[in-house]
Design a binder for these strands. Structure first.
Lengths: 144, 144
DNA sequence: CAAGATTGAGTCGTCAATCTTA
DNA sequence: TAAGATTGACGACTCAATCTTG
């Protein structure tokens, strides 16, 4: 009946909904090793940085506010995955340090995350994944 | 050096990050009328349903748990945008009813949301928006 | 007992105010 | 005073337990 309608509308809501679903999907798998995506991301940042980082830098790596990191590290510490240690260079600063338990959880978590992500994207051809990356990036650029 | 690397990797993280950015962008505009995206979505559901809904049905429309709606409606009620009224058909049930103030906020909010969404997607050709919709949908299907 | 709603506890995020150290 | 971290209050979400009504 027309050329412009009758097709699946892109829209903000479908994007947000899909992202939510993907996140929930991964987190449900990650729960098997007691990790959430934010916790895994924090351990990932610590791992890349050589097992430890000042809290402020951790906040930068995770693109969030410092008070959030205070609380996230509280929970990671309660889980025994990270410990807070004094920064020898600056007495105001505290270092988040990955514990051996944390490293093991991180490795298992990364394995699960990558496998789940693989399954999620297995429905897309390499070409489609590439297109998606480009479109996503354009959108994000506009939102900045 | 290779055929598979060297290109922008799609990945779960870029999707989640972009969705977050888009959401934050819209919410920053919506703040001008005192609305958040969840509040706007609730008003939207009420509007479509003819200004009122039992809380349980509102939860279904918003695809979330009932206890979340209890609290969201608490906040909407505190804002004067919605009121709780008894359900004449079932004394267990309570109706969320949009107030006149709520209707005005909803209309302004929808205008802002649509305008902002338009700006966000203005960087994409209709074809690209179409592709994005399809890819997003495929992803979400896998996450179910 | 089932269903509708609420409450309490926990995660994850924000912002504004505060405390300590440089 | 600035910078690093924390605290308190709040928004938005989850789940498990509870209360009321059917």
């Amino acid at each position: 009946m027309n050329e412009t309608g009758a097709l699946p509308k892109a829209g903000l809501f479908s994007l947000l909904h899909a992202a939510d679903a993907a996140q929930a999907h991964v987190e449900s798998r990650l729960a098997a090793v007691g990790l959430s995506l934010p916790k895994l991301a924090a351990l990932h940042a610590l791992s890349r940085a050589g097992e430890s980082l000042p809290l402020g830098q951790l906040a930068e790596h995770l693109s969030c506010v410092k008070s959030n990191i205070t609380q996230l590290v509280d929970r990671l510490e309660a889980d025994g995955l990270v410990s807070r240690e004094p920064d020898p260079n600056d007495r105001r600063s505290r270092l988040a340090v990955m514990t051996p338990t944390g490293r093991r959880a991180f490795e298992e978590g990364m394995r699960i995350q990558q496998q789940t992500e693989g399954e999620l994207f297995a429905g897309l051809t390499p070409d489609e994944a590439q297109q998606l990356a480009v479109l996503i990036q354009k959108l994000e650029q506009r939102a900045r």
